[in-house]
């Protein structure tokens, strides 16, 4: 589309003397459209990051991956963590405090309650049996050691 527009303009510019204005405006329109599309794609990307709950941090080293998530108010018993291949899944529930009586008046409601689920793709294959989880003060920390087979191997050079 764009290429043909440009080609049309160049041809017109070279052979037809003065620039044809509709040609330039169509390129401008196309550029504007591309810019809008790009911005839309980028904003979609950041928004999706913000909206996934829980928010996670991921640290890596050659030895493995460390994932942490803030889960205030969740009980350790209500957390379900699974690792399949390179996909880590966090599921859980934060129970609402108590059934609200009708005469209670809510001044602010900013905390999140209910169920959540999130799947994260890990950068490495991990040793499923050696994954350890710690849940302390509402912060979940998972240590996922890298699978032996996936670790980088140093290659020795033999010379004759």
């Amino acid at each position: 589309m764009l290429l043909s527009d440009l080609a049309g303009l160049t041809r017109g510019g070279l052979t037809g003397g003065p620039y044809r204005w509709h040609g330039i405006s169509s390129v401008q329109n196309r550029l504007k459209q591309m810019q809008d599309e790009m911005q839309g794609m980028l904003s979609g990307f950041t928004e999706r990051q913000l909206r996934q709950y829980p928010a996670i941090n991921l640290w890596t080293s050659e030895e493995g991956v460390l994932v942490s998530a803030e889960l205030p108010g969740v009980n350790a018993d209500d957390l379900d963590i699974t690792v399949v291949g390179r996909t880590l899944t966090l599921k859980g529930t934060r129970k609402a405090q108590e059934p609200n009586e009708t005469d209670d008046c809510c001044h602010r409601r900013e905390c999140r309650y209910g169920t959540f689920a999130r799947a994260i793709e890990l950068p490495y294959e991990v040793e499923g049996a050696k994954v350890s989880a710690k849940f302390d003060k509402g912060v979940l920390t998972l240590t996922l050691p890298r699978a032996e087979a996936d670790k980088p191997r140093k290659i020795n050079i033999t010379s004759n």
């Binding site: 996934q52 941090n57 991921l58 640290w59 080293s61």
Partner: peptide
């Protein structure tokens, strides 16, 4: 901050 690890993806 965990030692020997590098932050590679930070959301919060």
């Amino acid at each position: 901050v965990p030692q020997q690890y590098q932050a590679s993806y930070v959301e919060y």
